[in-house]
């Protein structure tokens, strides 16, 4: 007997149709922006969100604390010095801005995950990306432009092939 069960060549018909409404509770954008929910937020709005919900763990200067450091570290990735750590942050390492939205939306704030509105998540993403010198101080991010944000390390990844 193989490890995988035989489906006896047929559909079983168990379970029920999932309605679009039910599925609307889920958010998981693709790197090209498909799947991003409607909404928008500015850097300035994001600063408020950050101060209120993120600063305690990620630091006043996004330098990290209980939570990861979020900015800086460009130019530290090329490195083979065993005494120095490359600084991998949203700024230096993350290839897609959609990932930032997605991760904050699902997992942050750490102790109240899923509590932020989409607008707040766009806003705080904008704020982080601004502090990362990736978007302007007056940037507003939304479902249409987030995927177009030009991440510094967007070409940094290649498939491992293992």
């Amino acid at each position: 007997g193989g490890a995988v069960a035989d489906n006896h060549g047929k559909k079983f018909g168990f379970g029920h149709t999932a309605t679009p409404e039910e599925l609307s509770q889920f958010v998981s954008p693709l790197p090209d922006g498909r799947g991003l929910p409607k909404g928008s937020g500015t850097v300035m709005q994001g600063e408020k969100v950050y101060t209120q919900h993120c600063l305690a763990c990620h630091g006043a200067n996004l330098e990290g604390g209980i939570g990861d450091r979020l900015t800086g570290g460009r130019s530290t990735l090329v490195n083979n010095d065993p005494t120095k750590a490359p600084v991998k942050t949203v700024e230096s390492y993350w290839p897609y801005a959609t990932t930032l939205f997605d991760y904050i939306k699902r997992s942050m704030p750490f102790t109240q995950p899923g509590s932020l509105s989409n607008d707040d998540v766009y806003a705080v993403s904008a704020y982080i990306l601004h502090k990362a010198n990736i978007v302007d101080a007056n940037a507003e991010l939304n479902q249409d432009n987030l995927a177009k944000v030009d991440m510094p390390n967007k070409n940094g990844f290649k498939p491992a092939g293992r």
């Binding site: 699902r106 750490f110 102790t111 109240q112 995950p113 899923g114 509590s115």
Partner: peptide, 9 residues
């Protein structure tokens, strides 16, 4: 048991 386990640590 939280009503929504994705919303509380």
């Amino acid at each position: 048991v939280f009503p929504d386990p994705t919303k509380a640590q």
